[in-house]
Amino acid sequence: MTARNKAAKNNILDGSVPQQQDCYEGERLVHVLKSIQRGVESARALAENSLPEKVWLKQQFAIGVNDVTRVLERMAPTVENGSSAQSPCVRLQAILLAADCNPKWLIKHLPTLALSRKVPLMIVRDDKKGSLRLGELVKLKTAIAIGVKARGNAINQIIQELLDGDEVNQGALLEVQ
């Protein structure tokens, strides 16, 4: 077990949200959320269907703790070599999780479940407004957890750049279009 996994496990056991380098706050959070919002707008513009926006958003994201949990549970756990026994219908690329969830036990299971499925967590911390900021992404008042579904679009490209530690820039969106 790596040091990062041990730290995540200890945080899970005491009920706290992991505090790792994948915690976004301040200017970094603003930059990340604006980048993801541009990705959503770009992917929506490229979509050739006439679905209502709320339906289209549900195709791109698992919204809310229950929906994220449901999708994670349907994904097969990955074995040590990184492959899964079966390929799921829907796979999450990453989970955006608001650190201001109260009570904490509502999201206590998500880090363990995400770790077993090899889905990275991106913690959003914004002085008791993280859930409001996540809600803005999916046109809701608040959202404690948002799972980004792997669909191969501009949203996924931006999330992958964030996970790789690269700076998201405007050129990435231009390449997709």
Rank of each mutant, 00 (worst) to 15 (best):
Asn66Tyr: 08
Thr112Leu: 12
Asn102Val: 05
Asp100Ala: 11
Leu51Lys: 06
Leu140Arg: 15
Ile63Lys: 07
Asn156Tyr: 01
Leu162Asn: 04
Arg4Ile: 04
Asp127Ile: 05
Ile123Val: 15
Asp127Met: 10
Ala150Tyr: 09
Ser116His: 10
Arg28Asn: 12
Ile158Ser: 09
Gln157Ile: 10
Glu175Cys: 02
Gln157Pro: 00
Ser35Asn: 13
Ile158Tyr: 01
Arg28Val: 12
Glu41Gln: 00
Ala150Cys: 01
Gln170Leu: 15
Tyr24Leu: 15
Ile146Gln: 11
Leu173Tyr: 04
Asp100Gln: 11
Ser16Met: 08
Asn10Gly: 04
Thr112Ser: 10
Pro103Lys: 04
Gln20Gly: 15
Arg4Leu: 12
Glu25Pro: 00
Gly39Pro: 04
Gln19Phe: 00
Ile158Leu: 14
Val124Pro: 07
Arg133Cys: 14
Val138Gly: 04
Ser116Thr: 12
Val124Thr: 07
Val68Asn: 04
Glu80Ala: 14
Ser16His: 09
Pro52Cys: 09
Ile158Val: 15
Glu25Arg: 11
Cys101Ile: 11
Met75Ile: 07
Gln157Cys: 10
Val65Ile: 15
Asn10Tyr: 01
His109Gly: 03
Gln21Tyr: 04
Ala8Phe: 02
Leu106Cys: 09
Gln177Asp: 01
Val55Leu: 14
Thr2Met: 07
Gly135Phe: 03
Tyr24Ser: 12
Met75Leu: 07
Ala145Asn: 09
Gln157Tyr: 03
Pro103Gln: 05
Met1His: 11
Pro111Ala: 04
His109Cys: 05
